[in-house]
Nucleic acid binder design. Structure first.
Lengths: 223, 223
DNA sequence: TGAATAGTGTCTTTCAGACAATATGCC
DNA sequence: GGCATATTGTCTGAAAGACACTATTCA
């Protein structure tokens, strides 16, 4: 195939930004890293990096995630590509943003590894953030809020086994409002996506709860 | 601000691909251009081009659209970014795909300009296509089918004034099935998005129909 | 036995879907 | 007057939403 008529020219860089969410202490939290150099030194930004010639965009995302922690079973979805001219003062940079959801339980493993430079922030109490990352974060939160209503995105925020109360808490946290327990259970169970494990867990000095799991494992995109 | 520590390196190119849809003759159609050089010479591809340093990604999309025809009032939405390694044999190319919807009426203006290299194809009868464009097209059609159900995306496929029958036809064409006229009208009018113009149009030797317009003009993203 | 969460059913309202006859303008 | 599309309402079933009490375990 004749490909000799292609003339190289100056062109934009491409980065990936990875927005990793979890629910901790009843709040939706995002993982941010502190920048240790200019531009935007000492502000918080998403984990991310330049896409190399030798890797696909999605592989770049996975590389970033692995470099931060060996998280397994996470839900990963492309969010949007941000292509304005002056996003980065160093160079023309187009960023492909992804978001990932991890369960609270994975955060514990996370903390055990020495992720000194990264911290979890409630999306309601954000620090100063670099670049256009606050705008990107808002876009992601809107997407998650919207999509949880008609998808099984919540699975990404829960451990493999969970109670209906835990599931309800995930919805309530993301939607920012209380839900009726009976209606919630009725609907969830009627969707046929959950499978009872006939196994109970005791989470305090009260009646133990039945554990469930999601039937569909397709939801795990990045294992 | 110190930006001197940035070291240039070889990095992927970025293109935009623009999927322009319309409804003609009761079919969803896509505008494709014939490639006149390798790779994929003589196959059909989306209008597109490389993103330059001096323009935002969205400006690149608008540039492409303008170069093809002076279409006004089109609905424009980012579709997805495709970042696999071997998409283009000439170079490493990441493509940000957008889709646009234009009304049948705009297609007439279009044809008047000499767009020799571009042709409209029914998405059900596609020619041989280059790169990964068939996959991208499928992705777009799925998005449109899905989104028309819960958004006012149909506005992009209609002229400013239209009848309820025309609106229904748009839905039927995209969804690929007949809809009940009474239920369709009941629902559309109950949504409160339409405004009657108290103006009738005669479209044949039968009773003329009332014209409507969309109340919300925010839907026009690119004017 | 008290505290705390788990678990359950009915009624009402709303929305989706099936279904057919009359109205109007043009030729 | 005949034709072709425009316009309109009711009934039924399904799903969403409001609402409160009993069950179970542990300290």
């Amino acid at each position: 195939m004749d490909t000799n008529n292609f003339k190289p020219f100056d062109h934009p860089y491409v980065t990936v930004d990875v927005l990793i969410f979890t629910i901790m202490d009843g709040e939706l939290k995002i993982l941010l890293a502190k920048r240790d150099e200019n531009p935007f030194k000492d502000t918080m930004v998403f984990p991310g990096g330049f896409v190399q010639l030798t890797e696909s965009v999605e592989d770049a995302v996975k590389r970033i995630i692995k470099s931060k922690a060996g998280v397994k079973n996470l839900y990963l979805e492309q969010l949007y590509s941000f292509g304005d001219i002056n996003r980065d003062p160093r160079a023309r940079v187009i960023s492909v943003a992804y978001f990932a959801l991890i369960p609270d339980s994975a955060v514990k493993d996370w903390s055990q590894k020495g992720n000194k430079e990264t911290f979890w922030y409630s999306v309601k109490k954000l620090p100063e953030m670099g670049f256009d990352h606050k705008k990107i974060l808002q876009y992601a939160v809107d997407r998650i809020k919207n999509k949880i209503g008609y998808s099984t995105l919540a699975v990404g925020l829960l451990p493999p086994k969970f109670t209906l109360s835990q599931l309800q808490k995930v919805y309530e946290t993301i939607l920012g409002k209380k839900l009726d327990k009976r209606n919630f259970r009725k609907k969830m169970l009627s969707l046929g996506l959950l499978e009872s494990l006939n196994e109970k867990i005791s989470l305090g000095q009260h009646r133990p709860a039945m554990l469930y799991k999601f039937k569909n494992k397709e939801l795990v995109i990045f294992d």
